[in-house]
Design a protein around this nucleic acid. Structure first.
Length: 325
DNA sequence: AAATTTCACAACCGCCGCCGG
DNA sequence: TCCGGCGGCGGTTGTGAAATT
């Protein structure tokens, strides 16, 4: 027996809201509140709408102090920072941006930010091969550099000074704490456990990891955020020096950490590997998606090993890696 | 100028967790 | 403790506008 629908779909209006409907809903809620029951609300007002639809309309559009469009660089940075930290938890991200709705941020990410960071517009700008475009080429360069210097861990190099505003810093820190870490009274990280990992992280490692994370986000124009991540030394979950790409690989190969929307990294062939496949994890990316290519296992005896990572557009990957059918 | 493609965003869908009976 | 209803959430779709061919 399935769940009863929240409303009779045959007797409710769907699609765009008319100004009259908006006015009805808005004036009623402003005068009476929602009454704690969205399902009953449309009947009270005389709207032929699903309660959920009313709720969505109110929250995303009619509610006071809603901002639409015009995301600032600062907001971009916050969104990216939080997305990297917690994934596609839009409601949490929205809570950090007054006046923004989760739907707005989600749309903004999907239509603009993601492309901005990963250069999907390359399709518009030329053929597949031999074209290096903005952030994609930056990531590619970084990866090529890593390929030439395959020995990890790298020495820790502190990033640029923090340019994040204090409010953002504090707010994001608090959020990260809420999501799994914690600070002691004197504001030092203590006994932090990654929210999705079984591994406790020692104080100094986590502090450095967090510090680097904040730094690389805050110090960079948005187009360079992921470029920096490819090169910025971070600390992995075992407290070893690593970098952002390695973090991703680590996450993926151990798949203890949910990808949370980062799948597009593979879909768009941002990272491609075919060369190093030894004992693997259980994830069978290739079978899951014909455009997804498997990562090498990179954890070996507790130490990171460099997987060779290639990026489409910088190498003749069709020649090197003919697609298997 | 018309046709086609791409983009942006509003709205919908369905799952999940919480809460009260 | 169980169960059903509701709210909340994230993913996806639909549609109109803008850009491109």
């Amino acid at each position: 027996m399935g769940r009863a629908p929240c409303c009779d779909k045959n007797n409710v209006k769907r699609g765009p809201w008319s100004p009259e409907e908006d006015a009805k809903l808005k004036s009623y809620i402003e005068q009476n509140g929602t009454g704690g029951n969205w399902i009953a609300l449309p009947q009270k007002i005389g709207l032929k709408r699903c309660g959920k639809s009313c709720r969505l309309r109110w929250l995303n559009y009619l509610r006071p102090n809603i901002k639409h469009g015009g995301f600032s660089e600062e907001e971009d940075r916050i969104i990216c920072s939080l997305y990297i930290s917690i994934g596609s938890r839009w409601s949490i991200i929205a809570a950090q941006l007054p006046g923004r709705t989760d739907n707005d941020i989600k749309n903004y990410w999907n239509t603009k930010l993601k492309k901005k960071l990963f250069g999907k517009q390359r399709q518009k700008q030329g053929s597949r091969k031999g074209k290096e475009i903005n952030s994609i080429s930056s990531i590619s360069n970084s990866i090529n550099n890593m390929n030439q210097n395959p020995c990890w861990p790298e020495p820790l190099i502190m990033q640029q000074p923090i340019q994040f505003s204090n409010n953002d810093h504090t707010s994001i820190r608090k959020l990260l704490i809420k999501l799994g870490g914690k600070f002691s009274e004197n504001d030092q990280l203590t006994n932090v456990v990654s929210p999705n990992s079984q591994h406790p992280i020692d104080n100094s490692s986590m502090q450095l990891m967090y510090q680097n994370h904040i730094n690389l986000i805050s110090s960079s124009p948005i187009d360079n955020v992921f470029n920096n991540m490819s090169t910025a030394p971070l600390y992995n979950m075992d407290g070893e020096a690593s970098n952002f790409t390695a973090e991703f690989e680590h996450m993926i190969n151990n798949h203890q950490q949910k990808l949370d929307g980062l799948e597009f990294l593979y879909e768009d062939n941002v990272f491609i590997d075919k060369s190093a496949s030894t004992s693997g994890g259980n994830l069978d990316w290739e079978s899951m998606n014909p455009y997804v290519l498997p990562f090498p296992p990179i954890v070996d005896g507790g130490n990171f090993q460099q997987g060779v990572i290639l990026q489409e557009g910088t190498l003749d990957d069709e020649l090197r890696y003919p697609r298997e059918q």
